[in-house]
């Protein structure tokens, strides 16, 4: 393959050996992890729940299990997401899962099926509802905040805070968060302000562990130690080049002259 590439370099492009041709496609639905089971149980038992887990460990699945139950019981739930494009995407997913008449979408510039039991919203809209028309949420038992660590967003964090503080008292709060070290503190705050226990479900382990590598200027993959060393060397060499030129130049001569006098 590479030989032919060398023979006609300007026409043929480089190809990689495609391992995935022999690999099977990813398997279907996976078994639930213990933390997912725990989260779902606490939710079904009617607790406020804060789930902190790394990206891609299946937090959404927890939300979906809850939504299924809420819809089946004839009540409603709100799902908020931080980005409008994401709300649209979630809406499409939920429609595929629960049917068009069960799902509504409300963002600033769009609103579909406002009376549906499952409403996908931006957090800002939910915040506005909490103030202006909380009676619309009378039949809504849960609010799910996806990416609740957006609380820390300088521009938009306020919407999450006002939502948590002013969500109607009967609503259960479900927060899905990336791993944050002070999840307990946030849970305590929510418990404090809402006057109810908040269950914390934390998963630190990734579904697939990560391996970090650094790629040098030569295209080598380095481990952390090597990378540190490599960078140190690079920086030093740059400094060194600068010092050498100085020694060879005027500064060096000046020093010699100085010593003589």
């Amino acid at each position: 393959m590479s030989k032919s590439a060398e023979r006609v370099p300007q026409k043929r492009k480089r190809k990689v050996f495609r391992r995935d041709r022999v690999q099977p496609p990813p398997p279907g639905p996976l078994e639930l992890d213990p933390f997912q089971v725990e989260a779902i149980e606490s939710l079904l038992a009617g607790y406020d729940v804060l789930v902190a887990a790394p990206t891609g460990t299946g937090k959404t699945l927890i939300a979906e299990k809850l939504l299924e139950k809420v819809i089946a019981s004839g009540k409603g739930a709100v799902y908020t997401s931080p980005i409008k494009a994401l709300s649209n995407q979630k809406y499409r997913d939920f429609v595929a899962q629960y049917g068009k008449d069960k799902v509504g979408l409300i963002t600033g510039d769009l609103s579909i099926n406002e009376g549906a039991p499952l409403l996908v919203m931006t957090t800002e809209i939910f915040r506005n509802w909490c103030f202006a028309n909380p009676e619309m949420l009378d039949q809504t038992t849960h609010v799910i905040f996806d990416e609740v660590h957006y609380l820390d967003d300088a521009e938009r964090g306020t919407a999450w805070e006002e939502s948590i503080i002013f969500a109607p008292g009967h609503m259960r709060i479900v927060g899905l968060s990336a791993t944050v070290p002070n999840i307990r503190e946030i849970a305590n705050w929510i418990a404090d302000i809402r006057g109810r226990t908040v269950k914390i479900i934390e998963e630190r382990r990734r579904a697939v562990p990560l391996n970090l590598g650094w790629i040098s200027a030569e295209g080598d993959v380095l481990e952390e130690e090597e990378a540190h060393e490599y960078i140190k060397e690079k920086v030093e060499r740059r400094k060194g080049r600068w010092a050498e030129s100085e020694l060879a130049g005027a500064a060096g001569d000046y020093e010699k002259r100085g010593r003589r006098s």
Partner: peptide
Amino acid sequence: FYQMAGRAGRRGFDPIGHVFVRI
């Protein structure tokens, strides 16, 4: 960083998710 890096590793498919930082 981890929000982005964490996209590496497809569940039930890759044993490890590789993250590379270019120097």
